[in-house]
Design a protein around this nucleic acid. Structure first.
Lengths: 178, 178
DNA sequence: CAGTATATATCTATCACTAGATAGTTAATC
DNA sequence: GATTAACTATCTAGTGATAGATATATACTG
């Protein structure tokens, strides 16, 4: 079963939003990139609010799922946190673009409601994953601290074209969990 | 000596970029907000790249200057870091908008060169301030970690409409410096 | 089976509006 | 008279969005 058109649209939209921001991608950009007309993109996602919400929803699911289980008893909390950090590092290395919700989160009041709601849902779910992942370990780290540190490091790495902030953030987080 | 027109433009542009992103403000928005025509805004700042660069340069200077001295010998490193964190907290409380360079940093590859250069300069200078502020203290914190944590917490606070991430980040940072 | 209806996915063409930018003009200040 | 700062008017390009036509595939009906 090959990729549907809707998925092609979401793939390209996600990539461009992560690079250029929500206002940095247009229906025409998307259409011409995948070889259709902009009206066809509107057919699949009537408004930009719909498109943004779908992109964000799909991103959230895929990101959280990609983290794997936060409860595997054979794995240490430090290892789980390491995997979380690696998700950010991998994203930086492969795509040179930030977490979608770091891009959208900084302008959340400017987004259509349908879209900003999905951003909040992402942070809720990531917070819940982190809380579970940290359970049982004695650490000064909280979910908020962990997410702040990694998201901030991602943006700093991007802005300064250096992996260092991300690598330091990973080491710091892992070292604080035992 | 009252505020010049150029300053009025920069004031409004900064506020709107921090809320809505670089693409979220237009020459027309700015012009109508301060009661002139868009051509007059172009007179002061010929291109949007110029405007973005000036806004960012001014923001960087004002933010770093506002932090005060990182070398006052009568002050502890923890207190200096506390002041840095308070700058972010104050900005969240007063304007409900992020650090300008957190907004711009996440889409740095999409910005005009003149503007992205100023973003990098900001992070250079903030890194230098932090490095000096941490000097003499024994801590696992690095400038990158400190900046990552605070900027990330700012975005998370904004996206989740909660001061908690920022307050936790402040407490964490200060507790690690001695 | 033949014919018709329905749903899906695309197209062309266009709308009203906004974007950044510029040429040329006018008024005030130094 | 030059400089500064604004103006009017306009350009080209791009924005999200919509109406209406078309092709195709599936599904129901006589």
């Amino acid at each position: 079963m090959s990729k549907t058109r809707a998925d092609e649209i979401l793939d390209y939209a996600e990539r461009e939003i992560r690079k250029n921001g929500f206002d940095g991608v247009s229906f025409r950009d998307i259409a011409s990139a995948i070889g259709v007309k902009s009206a066809s993109v509107h057919y699949h996602f009537p408004t930009k609010a719909d498109l943004g919400a779908e992109v964000t929803k799909r991103y959230a699911e895929s990101f959280i799922d990609g983290l794997g289980s936060p409860t595997d008893p054979s794995e240490s909390a430090a290892s789980r946190i390491g995997r979380l950090a690696d998700a950010y590092i991998g994203s930086y290395r492969v795509e040179s673009s930030t977490c979608l919700c770091a891009v959208l989160g900084s302008v959340v009041s400017h987004l259509p409601d349908e879209t900003s709601n999905e951003v909040r849902t992402f942070y809720d779910r990531l917070g819940a994953w982190s809380a579970t992942a940290l359970e049982g370990s004695t650490t000064v780290l909280t979910p908020n601290l962990l997410i702040s540190l990694l998201q901030g490091a991602m943006v700093l790495s991007l802005a300064t074209s250096s992996e260092d902030p991300l690598l330091e953030a990973r080491a710091h987080a892992v070292s604080l969990v035992s």
